[in-house]
Amino acid sequence: MARLKVNPTRMQMTLLRSRLKTATRGHKLLKDKQDELMRRFIELIRENKRLRMSVEEELKDSFEDFLMTSALMSPQMIKQALAMPKTKVSVDIQSRNIMSVNIPEMEFIYTDQSGGEGEASIYPYGYAQTSAELDDAIEKLHTTMEKLLKLAAMEKAGQLMADEIEKTRRRVNALEYRTIPDLEETIKYIRMKLDENERATITRLMKVKDIIAKEA
């Protein structure tokens, strides 16, 4: 541990003492933050893995159907069928603060573009010239979308939290293994030095007193 380069004076010691107090308090708070972040992170990641597994499964299903469609219909037909979607999807993102990490919360907003009354159908085409597999693919995808968005929000949250945990851990370690020991050692050094000075003064005084007594 390196001693800080300071003058061994009483004033410096008071200063360093208050810095040590702040550092210790900061260390405790950061440690608590790290523990709580970690707890939430682990929870989130477990859920995230489960969700990703099921989403990947469902997407695979939908893609398989779409692959069948590609085999049954000509590319131009597919393109034409999907050219004019009836709905438009946008996403509303609010940020939520968990332990000073901004975590996104996402929500789909469907806007009907057909202008018709009532619930718009998710199929943007007439059924005459398309295959049933295309309907299946779209329906499966439609039901997966909510999950997919949840996955998106969760995965982003995971990344952001991992980042913050890493940062916090570095800070905690820096305080624990660097700042606090350094301060403690420097304070000890100053105290020793001051005590030594005091003893030197006392000895000197006694010596002086002796000399004066002898001369008198």
Binding site: T69, L82, T87, Y110, I138, H142
Partner: peptide, 17 residues
């Protein structure tokens, strides 16, 4: 929202806008 991918996989997303 956007999807990036090869045509054979992701074209179906277009149906949902």
């Amino acid at each position: 929202v956007a999807v990036v991918g090869d045509k054979d996989s992701v074209l179906v997303f277009k149906a949902l806008g």
